[in-house]
C-alpha cells in the first residue's frame, strides 16, 4: 500500500518535448512508472522514445486512460496547463514547474477546488512524489530509497525529501510514499492532506515531516497531529538561522515579524507530541529509533 500513486497509476507528461520534460519522463519510465503519453500541442503524432505525444490532455486521457499528469511546462503556461488537466478529469496534477506568479496559483487552485473537486493539485514548485518501487512522478532520485515502508515522508523542500530518503535508505529503513508538497505560497496539497492519507494507509506506520519557515502550515499540521494522528511523527524545520524579512529562496519561506519562525513551528510540533530534530540527518536517526520501537 501507499498513498496517491502506485504501480497501476497511468501518467502523462505535459511538456514532454522540452529538455527537462523529456529527461524526467524517460527517467520516471525507466524507474517503472507507467508513463503512457505526453502532451505538446505542436508535436502531436510524434513520440518520445516510444511514448506517444498528443495535442491535448483530453486526447491523451481518451487514448491512454491516464489518471495522473506531471506538468513540466514554462511558468507562463503553467496555469492553463493545470486547468486543462483538471478539465480533462485527471485525478492527480503534479505541477513541478517553479516560478509561477502567485496570483496565477491562487486563481487556478481556487478554480480547480470549485469546478473540478475530484482533481488534486500537488505543487506547484514541487519535486513530485514517489511510491518506492512502484511509481515516480517528478524529480525525486528514487535509487537511494528502499521500498515497502514503514515510513511515509512529506516535505515542503524538494532536496530535503531526497536527504530523508537517502538517510533512511542507508539505515535500511523502507518508505511507502514520499511527497514533496512544494515551497510556494499556495500549495495544492497540504501537510494535513498527506498526514491524513498516511494515517489511513495501513503500510505507513510512522511519518517524517520536513517543514520550513514562513506561513503557518506547520502549526496547522501540529494541531491536526494532536487531534487526529495515532502514528508517530518526526520533524525538522529548516531556517533556524534565517533572518526576518528575507525570502530564503522559496516564495513562501519568509519570516514576517514574529510569525513563521522555525522556533515557533518546532514548539508547536513538540507540543503536539512530534519528535523534532535539529537537522535533517538527525531526523533520520530519530526515525530509526521510532522504527525500532514499532
Amino acid at each position: 500500500m501507499s498513498i496517491l500513486v502506485n504501480a497501476d497509476t497511468k501518467v502523462i507528461v505535459q511538456g514532454i518535448t522540452g529538455g527537462q520534460g523529456r529527461f524526467y519522463a524517460l527517467r520516471n519510465r525507466a524507474y517503472g512508472t507507467l508513463v503512457v503519453g505526453g502532451v505538446s500541442p505542436k508535436k502531436a503524432g510524434t513520440d518520445v522514445e516510444g511514448i506517444p505525444v498528443f495535442g491535448s490532455v483530453a486526447d491523451a486521457v481518451r487514448e491512454t486512460g491516464a489518471t495522473a499528469t506531471m506538468v513540466i511546462v514554462p511558468a507562463a503556461g503553467a496555469a492553463s496547463a493545470v486547468l486543462e488537466a483538471a478539465e480533462a478529469g485527471l485525478e492527480l496534477i503534479v505541477a513541478v514547474t517553479e516560478g509561477i506568479p502567485v496570483h496565477d496559483e491562487a486563481r487556478f487552485y481556487n478554480q480547480v477546488q470549485r469546478d473540478f473537486p475530484s482533481s488534486r493539485i500537488l505543487g506547484p514548485n514541487c519535486p513530485g512524489l514517489l511510491t518506492v518501487g512502484e511509481c515516480n512522478i517528478g524529480f525525486i532520485p528514487a535509487e537511494v530509497a528502499r521500498p515497502g515502508g514503514p515510513v511515509g515522508i512529506v516535505s515542503r523542500s524538494g532536496t530535503l525529501t531526497y536527504q530523508a530518503l537517502s538517510d533512511l535508505g542507508q539505515k535500511g529503513i523502507g518508505v511507502t510514499t514520499c511527497v514533496g508538497i512544494g515551497g510556494d505560497p499556495v500549495p495544492g496539497t497540504s501537510f494535513i492532506d498527506c498526514l491524513s492519507l498516511f494515517e489511513a494507509d495501513p503500510d505507513t506506520k510512522a511519518v517524517i515531516m520536513f517543514g520550513e519557515i514562513g506561513g503557518s502550515a506547520e502549526e496547522e499540521a501540529a494541531d491536526f497531529i494532536r487531534a487526529k494522528m495515532s502514528k508517530p511523527v518526526v520533524s525538522y524545520i529548516a531556517g533556524v538561522t534565517a533572518p526576518p524579512g528575507k525570502k530564503m529562496g522559496h516564495a513562501g519561506a519568509i519570516v514576517s515579524g514574529s510569525k513563521g519562525t522555525a522556533q515557533a513551528k518546532m514548539e508547536a510540533l513538540e507540543a503536539a507530541g512530534v519528535r523534532v530534530a535539529t537537522n535533517p540527518t538527525a531526523a533520520g536517526e530519530l526515525m530509526a529509533e521510532v522504527v525500532r520501537g514499532l
Binding site: G158, Q163, I213, N279
Partner: peptide, 25 residues
C-alpha cells in the same frame, strides 16, 4: 541546491558551532 537544503545547510553550520556567511540556493 534547493531552498530547503540551503536553509538546512546554514542551520547545520550553526549547529556544529560555525556561522554561515550567506544563504545561496
Amino acid at each position: 541546491n534547493g531552498a530547503g537544503l540551503a536553509m538546512a545547510t546554514c542551520d547545520i553550520v550553526h549547529e556544529v558551532g560555525g556561522r554561515p556567511a550567506n544563504f545561496l540556493d
